[in-house]
Amino acid sequence: MAPKSPAIARLQPSYALSPITALAFYEPTPDRVLLLAGEDTWLKVYDIETSQLLGQLTIFSSQPIHGIHVSQPDAHSPSPSGILLWGGHSVALLPHSSLASLLAGQPAPQPTESRAPDWIYNGILFPQDPNPTSTSKPTGALVTAHNEILPFSLPPTAAEPPQQQEQQQHPLLFGPLTSPSRPILYSANLALLAPDTVLVAGGTVFGEIIVWKY
């Protein structure tokens, strides 16, 4: 009878290197700049001066992060919406309070992952009204692979106290798609011309550049 072969040890991964698929700068204070990096499904926060990893948070369940848009406080929006992240059909809005928790070394809840009806190429956040109403404008907009603008909003939470609003995670509410034409785009970008006007630029496979306003 042949002797039994020795048991083969199961290998365990000790280190994984993932591609960096999205980058954005974030200024929590006027004298400090941080780097937000999308690494697979994770959002990682680095200090620019020290290169130190300050915190990380899972954003999507399986979809890599493809883009990051950061809203900064200004005269039009003293209370910015947060950090918009997207990848494939997935999109999430991370409140600034969650990022502050990461920087303080505290756990932050994973944002709610919403699903857009089409592939997302870019996104933008609108300046927010300090006194929102039921008829307030959308929180932001996405541009899809078919040259469509998809506005989105958060559910109304005006009746909730501010502390509860920050702790709760809400799925995004999508509005109707808008487009002057629906070619298949290979790239797209958005720029805010005014608090309620977005400039859309899209590039097609045939070498065309389509520019229009929303």
Rank of each mutant, 00 (worst) to 15 (best):
S5P: 05
Q12F: 07
Y15C: 13
A16P: 02
A16V: 12
S18L: 11
T21Y: 10
T21F: 09
A22P: 08
F25A: 10
E27F: 11
P30G: 04
L35D: 06
A37L: 12
G38S: 13
W42G: 05
W42T: 09
L43I: 11
Y46C: 10
L53G: 07
L54Y: 07
G55V: 08
T58D: 01
I59G: 13
I59K: 12
F60E: 10
Q63D: 09
I65K: 10
H69A: 13
Q72P: 02
P73D: 06
P78E: 02
G82E: 05
L85A: 15
L99E: 06
L102Y: 03
A108H: 13
P111G: 13
R115D: 06
A116E: 00
P117K: 02
W119S: 08
W119V: 09
L125S: 05
Q128N: 06
Q128A: 11
T133A: 04
S136C: 09
S136E: 03
L142T: 12
V143G: 00
A145Q: 11
E148Q: 15
P151D: 10
S153R: 04
P155L: 13
Q165I: 14
Q165A: 13
Q168C: 10
H170T: 15
H170S: 15
L173S: 08
G175C: 07
T178F: 01
R182N: 14
P183L: 04
Y186K: 15
L192P: 09
T197P: 03
T197K: 15
V198F: 01
V200T: 02
A201N: 02
T204L: 05
F206T: 15
E208M: 02
Y214Q: 02
Y214W: 09
